[in-house]
């Protein structure tokens, strides 16, 4: 068994609006001098620390947790899972 840090990023699916990201872009960033930014998307990240036998097992375990416990609502959101060695 090894320890892994797993980052779970939850964000709205493509095509689903993200009013918070849009407001931060239009009313904060673009109003300053930073005109090269074209998109901001908000997301929520959960950082898990987990003991599993390998990276693959860690990933599938976390995916299962996310699905089973409705950590994200697949109606509107997607999750991206990144696994790192602790």
């Amino acid at each position: 068994m090894a320890t892994f840090n797993v980052h779970v990023t939850i964000e709205n699916k493509p095509g689903i609006s993200d009013p918070e990201g849009d407001t931060i872009l239009n009313d904060l960033v673009l109003k300053g001098a930073h005109k090269t930014v074209s998109k901001i998307k908000t997301a929520k990240m959960l950082k898990f620390t987990i003991k599993e036998k390998d990276k693959k097992a860690a990933r599938s375990k976390i995916q299962k947790i996310c699905d089973e416990l409705r950590i994200y609502n697949p109606m509107v959101s997607t999750v991206t899972i990144d696994v790192f060695n602790a």
């Binding site: 009013p19 918070e20 931060i24 009313d27 904060l28 300053g32």
Partner: peptide
């Protein structure tokens, strides 16, 4: 203000 986005008050502060 600004729907409390990012953090309440931060956008209006600009």
């Amino acid at each position: 203000s600004y729907g409390d986005r990012l953090r309440a008050g931060v956008i209006a502060a600009h």
